[in-house]
Design a protein around this nucleic acid. Structure first.
Lengths: 324, 324
DNA sequence: ATAATATTGACAAATTATATACAAGCTTGT
DNA sequence: ACAAGCTTGTATATAATTTGTCAATATTAT
């Protein structure tokens, strides 16, 4: 689907405009003044763009949105433009911080109650155990030292055969509901920065994404939560609609197929927002993440740090990239 | 859906207009000017469209709505049109269409607030709208006249291209959380009958299952909720562990593969519990349900009736007066 | 008979192309 | 710092083209 660019397909200027985010006027004037593209013409003199023309327009709209002048970049070839987009993105990329794990006794006690309830398929008790833990522990501790070990342990026992899938299926909605109410216990202020949280296509486990949502909400962000298994084009569209300054993705399946990289490229290529990627499998995609100009966020602590950095430097860099 | 195209069925132009969203005038002029379709004629010269003609008209209306000119695309074949629709939908970054709703009854008014919030991807407002509706309406009314129409409408608009998948993905977790808290607002008594609620393997939409859980919980059942996409063997194992007297399943995808029937047979064959099957696609599995000895539950009202019958026949005596 | 459909012709609205103008934001030179 | 000039997106005007809608008339359906 990706290398299948159909060079024959000719698109009218309206389609080129919608896909690139530029207005037809700008497309025409870029052609006239700088020969930025050279569409063919129909029998009645209408401009016809092929897929490469449109990709070029998209690249040009990105580099100009990054502050460059159209007159300076109109003559560059595709490869130079692509490289320039990457450079502009990776200017924001920073290296992640180390990780730390702790095994305390109080969280461990709560965890053991939860495990007991799970092994008896007792949803009611699991729910009240989690609520007790929630009252006794800080949200981060609850998530990192109760919920995450709980899910991990269930998965492990399922793998070794001492637990069934049913246990995991009973636990997930309950943990999910607890996370949701945790997230909702924070009310975003009117001028709060906007964050999109989702799980890319093919990734169906959403607890990691919900934890990211909780972290962000507790840090004052307004979070739009899009759940799991959403194609990059949809995430991009939502990001434009909400005009978010950052997107957080959670990945849990490591995959031999580097499609996640392709999805990431779509995102970083079409949306003027910082893309953060976390989840237990994020390390497996490290190269793709870096290449796409996204930021790897291995832990909730790093996520929080990156969010704070973003908020501090929030000059709203890509504010006018796409006009309405 | 796919092999069910009846090539014999001939529809008058009014039907073609309704289904494609085009006016009869436009359909005729597209035929006259561009030979976009070639309907057969009746003995008295009326145009007669078959299902493929109508699908073609629908595709053409979609690609023109995406900015293409009818003169450019009228000659393409079905496959090219389908691909074009797909490409346009995924390449476009903006939200397609406006919304309009009419306010009538009380539930309809709540629904219209929800729809507005959804179309603006405003999760916060959607959530508070649902909470208002929850406070103002009975749970059954909330589910059947607000939540279900809302999800249905979103699906419909996604199908016609005026909404994106992102809207649905934002809405589902919020509706789900509301249902969950609805379910948790009922506390089961110690001697309450036990019910298992899940979605069989391959069925990933869990909202219907959650509604069943709410109905049962509000009727005094202790509900163990197992979420979505769970193989029958797992459901059976959980049913034995919890010693439930009934299992409620929700199916939303109709499938040519009668595997659901096989799954049902596993359940009814291994577990001494009544199996109830509901959900928007339950009618499609009617034969398999009946053959497996399960009960089809087309509506929440029927579900409630069946649950009460079960409780009256096998439940504890002296527990009859819970509520009316 | 009233309503719907078919045919033809015409027309208005929308889109497009081209050229020109203009305003806001920069460089640059002093 | 300030003015002049350049850059760049947007707006206007005009002509050509495309496209949706309407009107008039004849035929058919209910």
């Amino acid at each position: 689907m990706e290398n299948r660019k159909n060079q024959e397909a000719k698109h009218p200027i309206q389609v080129a405009a919608r896909r690139s985010g530029l207005s037809p006027d700008v497309i025409r004037v870029w052609e006239r003044r700088y020969q930025a593209i050279s569409p063919t013409r129909s029998g009645t003199n209408r401009r016809l763009y092929n897929d490469e023309d449109i990709e070029r327009l998209l690249l040009l709209s990105q580099v100009t949105a990054a502050g460059r002048r159209i007159g300076d970049v109109a003559g560059l070839d595709m490869e130079q433009l692509r490289e320039m987009v990457w450079e502009d993105r990776s200017a924001e990329v920073r290296l992640p911080a180390p990780v730390r794990v702790d095994a305390g006794s109080l969280p461990a006690r709560h965890l053991s109650y939860c495990i007991k309830a799970v092994s008896e398929l007792d949803g009611e008790t699991l729910e009240s155990s989690l609520n007790h833990a929630r009252a006794a522990l800080a949200p981060i501790v609850l998530m990192e030292q109760v919920m995450m070990p709980l899910m991990h342990l269930i998965g492990e026992r399922w793998y070794t055969g001492s637990m069934r899938a049913a246990e995991e299926h009973m636990t997930t909605p309950i943990v999910r509901a607890t996370l949701w109410s945790l997230k909702n216990s924070h009310r975003a202020e009117d001028n709060a920065p906007e964050l999109l949280v989702a799980t890319p296509a093919g990734q169906r486990h959403e607890l990691g994404a919900l934890m990211a949502a909780v972290v962000a909400a507790s840090d004052g962000w307004r979070v739009t939560y899009l759940g799991s298994d959403l194609p990059a084009t949809e995430i991009a569209a939502a990001a434009v609609t909400r005009n978010v300054s950052a997107i957080a993705l959670s990945v849990t399946y490591p995959s031999d197929d580097p499609a996640i990289g392709g999805e990431l490229n779509i995102l970083t290529g079409t949306v003027p927002a910082v893309v953060l990627v976390g989840g237990v499998a994020s390390a497996a995609y490290r190269d793709g993440i870096r290449r796409a100009g996204a930021i790897e966020v291995p832990t909730t602590a790093v996520l929080r740090a990156e969010l704070r950095k973003l908020r501090a430097s929030s000059g709203r860099p890509g504010n006018g990239a796409l006009h309405g």
